[in-house]
Design a protein around this nucleic acid. Sequence first.
DNA 1: GAGAAAGGCAACTTTTCGGTTGCCTTTCTC
DNA 2: GAGAAAGGCAACCGAAAAGTTGCCTTTCTC
Lengths: 112, 112
Amino acid sequence: MPNLGATTAGQDAAALFAALGDPTRLSLLTALSDGHPSSIAGLSGGTELTRQAVTKHLTVLEKAGLVESMKVGRESHYSFRRDRIDIMRAYLDGVSRQWDDALERLRAFVER
Amino acid sequence: MPNLGATTAGQDAAALFAALGDPTRLSLLTALSDGHPSSIAGLSGGTELTRQAVTKHLTVLEKAGLVESMKVGRESHYSFRRDRIDIMRAYLDGVSRQWDDALERLRAFVER
DNA sequence: GAGAAAGGCAACTTTTCGGTTGCCTTTCTC
DNA sequence: GAGAAAGGCAACCGAAAAGTTGCCTTTCTC
């Protein structure tokens, strides 16, 4: 009965959430969220991860649009894309608002 | 240099995001977010998925705390937990606020 | 009480994911 | 210009995830 044929918006949101659904990627994003664009070497330094592992995670984040990269000389500088965070927050707002509305309808129905 | 040793809060948030990072689960959650607790049969009806597949997804959602179940006769009724959505929104707020702060510091530095 | 509806349990297959290793190219820097 | 630093590319590995099938139990309902 409910529409389970994942909507387009749902697909997008799922891709974003999936990108965030890994502790390492979330750490990378947090590291980038301080505003300093960082190189791959800079981000993998101080970790037990190999440079390639970090590269893969950054690629996932970039494909999800949460991060963007720019070549600077021999380095790749990654930076945070704030607008995408807003998209997800909007999605979560939508879900919880829908929930609020449902509670409201339920209350109205019960009190009638 | 940056702290990549995934924080506790980050771990929690990652688990929540991971639970949402699948189109099917996101659809299930959206279906539940209208406030009607639904049975497994009700949720899998109208999908190409088997009942067991839906059950697995619901288990994932329940372990992540996004959903709770209650036995009613021979049925299991699943419902949405709104408070967990708030946790994720708080995380996203934190990330984007940090970003805002960084921009503010940058602006202050440039204008000095 | 018999058949059907709802679902739990467990084994199994296939795909994806996180990660590593090895090698090659590009760009610095002395 | 030679060596080092930064990183791209591709093959490979092990574990987890997504989904299926088959069978058994519980609860309705006629």
